[in-house]
């Protein structure tokens, strides 16, 4: 039991992932969809950050005099830095699209845009 609770980071990952995913699927509002998408991606960032933690490890900075320190794995952090950039770009692009959609349709509700296209 304790072992399972000890992995609470992973629980948070799973819960966040599902919250984000639910918002993407269930919300017709495009901005809310993008919010969901961001949460969804942030959950994955957490997964990566969690996995690089080494018990008792410190930040991986080599200093004079501390040769035998235990470091956390720096690679996932670097990876996730890239992924965060990708995530930001995606959100930015998505929001830009939403602005254009609002200009073209006058609404950002997905069902309403669909109806507008059907009426054409």
């Amino acid at each position: 039991m304790m072992e399972l609770l000890g992995l609470y980071n992973y629980w948070v990952f799973a819960v966040l992932l599902m919250i984000g995913f639910y918002a993407v699927i269930a919300r017709p509002n495009m901005v809310k969809k993008l919010l969901g998408l961001s949460i969804f991606q942030a959950a994955v960032f957490l997964l990566y950050i969690t996995m690089d933690k080494v018990e008792g490890g410190t930040a991986p900075i080599i200093q004079k005099g501390v040769e035998d320190a235990i470091y956390s794995n720096p690679l996932p952090q670097v990876l996730i830095l890239t992924a965060i950039v990708v995530g930001i770009s995606t959100t930015a692009l998505g929001l830009a699209l939403v602005v254009r959609i609002h200009e073209a349709y006058g609404t950002i509700e997905e069902d309403e845009t669909q109806r507008a296209d059907l009426d054409e």
Partner: peptide, 24 residues
Amino acid sequence: ALTATFKYLIMGTIGATFYLIGVG
């Protein structure tokens, strides 16, 4: 084109994120 892109963006990002989870 805008709404189609938005749909693609949402689904494409989910796909890519799934891939990222797997790779992780």
